[in-house]
Amino acid sequence: MTIITGASSGIGAATALKLANAGSKILLVSRADDKIEKVKQEIERAGGQAEIFVADVTDLEQMKAMVEFAIDKYGRIDNLVNNAGLMLFSQWKDVAIDEWNKMIDTNIKGYLNAIAAVLPKLLDQRSGHILNMGSVAGINIDVGAGIYHGTKFFVRAITESLRKEVSVHNGIKISLISPGVINTGWADKVTNKEGAEIAAELNKQAIESEDIANAVLFAFSQPDNVNVNDIVVSPTSQDW
């Protein structure tokens, strides 16, 4: 079975549908909204199996409860897609501390909380797969998104550390997928005026969430002795 955080829309929802169609049982994790139920219904209409767990990744206790729910329901955890994320744009001169903290809480602490909750179970099993959703923003840096870049460099760093410490010695696969510009609706969430203009321009070249879901399925479909470490998936026209 596969746990997917941030599963109510965008890459999370597309990945849930793709993996369910490939035969995986899915635990859809998201904060409460009406979109998550629609994802579940779409999976079930296609003949797949899915359950919903309403939780906030920034709360460690809720992540631990998520894992216990998964174990009670399915008996084991095979995959975690650490996907819940927040991308906001602002200039340094804006000193947008509230937005900085939101990204740090979700993109850094949220990933750590999900890993902290899931990893002990995978170590007990001596099997499983953690896939962290990174970004090309964790490879290249541009103006207007310094904190977001920082959070995605963090994700890249912890993924490689996990791979060397956990995967190599315990048989637990660790992967990173770094999307380029994806049409997930993120640009509409940018409230800063200058940031919104940058986001709208970037989004003109975006590819779709399903393109990333294909990469997730590829990583999860490899034989036991193959670990997909790092995949970058970008629009053909993206030059960074």
Rank of each mutant, 00 (worst) to 15 (best):
I3M: 09
A7C: 12
G10I: 05
I11N: 00
T15V: 03
A16E: 07
I26Y: 09
L27I: 15
S30I: 09
K35M: 07
I36Y: 06
Q41L: 11
E42G: 08
G47P: 13
E51H: 11
F53T: 09
A55M: 04
T58C: 08
D59L: 04
M66L: 15
F69I: 13
I77L: 10
N79C: 05
V81T: 03
G85V: 06
L86M: 13
L86K: 08
V95A: 11
E99H: 08
W100H: 14
N101K: 15
N101E: 15
I108M: 15
A117L: 08
L119M: 14
L119T: 05
P120Y: 13
L122R: 05
D124N: 10
D124H: 09
M133D: 02
S135Y: 11
A137L: 05
G138P: 12
I141F: 05
I141A: 13
V143N: 12
G144Q: 09
G146W: 04
I147W: 10
Y148E: 03
Y148C: 04
F154M: 11
A157T: 15
A157Q: 14
T159H: 07
E160V: 05
S161Q: 10
I172P: 01
I172S: 01
P179E: 04
G185Q: 11
W186L: 09
K189T: 15
K193C: 00
E194V: 14
A196P: 00
Q205W: 01
I207Y: 08
E210N: 13
F220H: 01
S221R: 02
N225S: 14
N227H: 05
N227Q: 12
V232F: 09
